[in-house]
Structure formats: C-alpha cells, structure tokens
Amino acid sequence: MKEIKIDVNFKVYASIDELDVVFRDLMTEAVEIRKKAYAPYSKFRVGAAILLENGQVVTGSNQENAAYPSGLCAERTAIFYAGANFPDQKILAIAISACSDLKITNGPIPPCGSCRQSLFEYEVKQENPIKLFCMGGVGEVIESSSVGNILPFHFDKAVL
C-alpha cells in the first residue's frame, strides 16, 4: 500500500475588482452572459467566458430543458463552441460566474464534474494549462492556474 498526496494552490481575490484588467473584463463578460441563461426550472444561472490566444472571447450560458438532463451547462456550451469554431486556437483562460434567482451566491462556485472533465480534455488537447476563474453572483473570485487542479485524479486519452 502507498499513499498519494496531491497539493493544489489557488489564489483568492476579495472581489472581481482585484483581478488584472484582462481577467476582470473576462469575468465581466461571464457575468453579462449569465444574465441570458435559460434557467426556468433551477433558477440557477451560469455564465462562462473563454479567452482564446488570438484575443477573441467566446461566451456561453446554461440552457435548461424540461426533459432533464437534456440541457447543457454554460462551461460546455462555451468550450464546445470554441472548439468547433476556433479549433486551432489555444484557450488561455475561462471565467465562470454563477448565481441563483432565489438566494445570494457570494462564494466561488466551481464547475460540475461533467464540465471539469470537458474543460480538462481541452487542456490536455492543447498541451497547455487553462487558467480558471470562478465566482458566485458577488464576492470572492478563485483563480486556478490549471483546470487540472480541480480534477487532480483525472481520466484522459492516455488511458484509452
């Protein structure tokens, strides 16, 4: 028997205002697209903004469906669009903002497991880390230097 220890470090900012201007603008785009989410059932809105190496920003919001689980999360909406329309562009960063129509979400909200796996797939594909920024509706923002940090014991193409 052996034991594995995985250490992960994150940066925590008190608010969006503490981010570098490029990432503050990216998070602002995530907040804006979050407002366009189609979330009539969960009342939980998520926006994602992706910064590509050419400077282009791709956004996505969650899209629900009465026939659960036919909807799609904001992160996958955005990253699949980026992959389909900009297949040769590296993804530098993704900003995610989530909030509830029913209560205040004042802490960082990370991606779900399916989104973590999908985001990580692109990180592996491009052989370059993707910075990740997460926040709730207001309050702190967490920065991870890599999607792999939030999926430390991951599944990827190396095992196939």
Rank of each mutant, 00 (worst) to 15 (best):
S114W: 08
L26F: 09
G148T: 07
D101W: 07
V159A: 01
V159D: 09
V8I: 15
M1P: 14
G60V: 02
Y81T: 09
L26D: 06
S61F: 11
I150G: 05
S145I: 07
T105I: 15
L26V: 08
D20E: 12
I33H: 00
P69W: 13
Y81I: 00
D156Q: 03
Y38I: 14
F120C: 08
E121A: 05
E3L: 10
Q63F: 09
V12S: 13
S97T: 13
S42N: 13
L26H: 07
V141K: 08
L160W: 12
F155D: 05
A74R: 01
F44Y: 14
R116P: 01
I79S: 00
P40Y: 14
E32M: 14
Q126W: 08
S100I: 05
T28Y: 06
T28S: 14
E121Y: 00
Q56R: 11
L26S: 06
L92P: 03
S145E: 15
E3Y: 07
T28E: 12
S145V: 04
N9E: 15
F10I: 13
P129F: 06
A74K: 00
K131R: 15
A39W: 04
N62W: 02
I130K: 03
I150Y: 04
A66S: 13
S114G: 12
D101G: 04
D101R: 07
S61M: 08
D156E: 10
E127N: 15
Q89W: 01
E123H: 04
S118M: 14
Y13S: 05
L92G: 01
D17T: 04
C73W: 01
N9T: 15
I150A: 07
P69S: 15
